[in-house]
C-alpha cells in the first residue's frame, strides 16, 4: 500500500500546504502572485526569477512540501524519487509568450527553453540533484486513477517515492496540486481514488466557476 505523505495547493488567490492556507494573494502588491509567495516564504534561489510560471509553481509547491516534511529527501538515494506530472494544456501559457515575443521582435531563447511541459521536472531535478524517473502526461482533467496507476508502476519498478503534480496554468486560472507518494505513511492518507480526489479538490472551495467549464 502507498500513502500520500504531503501535499500542496496553489491557486489564483491562495497557497496551502497539507490543507492549511499559508499565503493569500495581496491584490495591492506590486509583485506577481508567485513572487509574493517566494518573498513571504523567504526562499533564496535567484534562478526562480528566470523560470516560467509552470516551473515557478513546481519550485514553490515542491519546496513547501519538503519544508512540511523535512526528513523526506534524506530518506532516499538520488535516483529513488520519481516525478509524475500532468496537466491539460502542456506549456501553452509559455508558448503564447514566446509567440508574442517573436511576432513583436525577436525569438527569445530564454523563453523558448521553457516551452516544453516537462521542463518543470528538470528544474526540480536540478535543484534537488534527483536523477530518477520522470513522466509528463497531458490529460483533459485531473484524474486520480491515472496518478494511482502510474505511481504503482513507478513504485514497483525501483522508485521509492513519487513527487506528483496536477500542474495546470492557463491565463489567470491556476490549478496546481502537488503531492508526495511514499510507501509508508498514515492510514487516513492511504493512496486510493477516493482519498486522492477528496484531497485534490480540498482547495477548490472558491473554484466552482472554473470547475463548471472544466469538464466538457
Amino acid at each position: 500500500m502507498n500513502f500520500i505523505t504531503a501535499y500542496g495547493h496553489l491557486q489564483e488567490n491562495s497557497c496551502a500546504v497539507n490543507g492549511e492556507t499559508i499565503c493569500r494573494r495581496d491584490k495591492n502588491s506590486g509583485d506577481p502572485w508567485f513572487r509574493q509567495i517566494y518573498k513571504e516564504q523567504e526562499f533564496v534561489y535567484p534562478k526562480f526569477h528566470k523560470m516560467d510560471v509552470l516551473s515557478q509553481a513546481g519550485f514553490l509547491t515542491s519546496e513547501l512540501i519538503k519544508r512540511a516534511n523535512p526528513q523526506f529527501a534524506g530518506k532516499y538515494k538520488d535516483d529513488e524519487i520519481a516525478m509524475l506530472f500532468a496537466n491539460r494544456s502542456g506549456s501553452a501559457e509559455t508558448d503564447q509568450k514566446f509567440v508574442h515575443a517573436y511576432q513583436n521582435g525577436t525569438p527569445s531563447p530564454s523563453l523558448f527553453v521553457y516551452t516544453l511541459p516537462n521542463i518543470v521536472m528538470g528544474e526540480i531535478a536540478i535543484l534537488n540533484k534527483w536523477y530518477g524517473e520522470s513522466l509528463f502526461a497531458v490529460l483533459p482533467a485531473f484524474d486520480a486513477e491515472f496518478y494511482i496507476n502510474h505511481c504503482n508502476l513507478l513504485l514497483s519498478a525501483g522508485s521509492e517515492a513519487v513527487l506528483c503534480s496536477w500542474h495546470e496554468i492557463a491565463g489567470n486560472q491556476i490549478d496546481v496540486f502537488t503531492f508526495l507518494i511514499e510507501k509508508e505513511g498514515e492510514s487516513r492518507f492511504e493512496l486510493t481514488t477516493n482519498t486522492l480526489s477528496k484531497i485534490a479538490f480540498e482547495g477548490n472551495f472558491h473554484k466552482t466557476e472554473i470547475n463548471a467549464n472544466y469538464y466538457y
Binding site: I119, M121, A125, I126, W130, Y131, L135, A157
Partner: peptide, 11 residues
C-alpha cells in the same frame, strides 16, 4: 523494460 534518468544538471 526501459528506463529514464534525469541529468539533474541543466534544462
Amino acid at each position: 523494460a526501459g528506463t529514464t534518468a534525469n541529468d539533474a544538471n541543466h534544462i
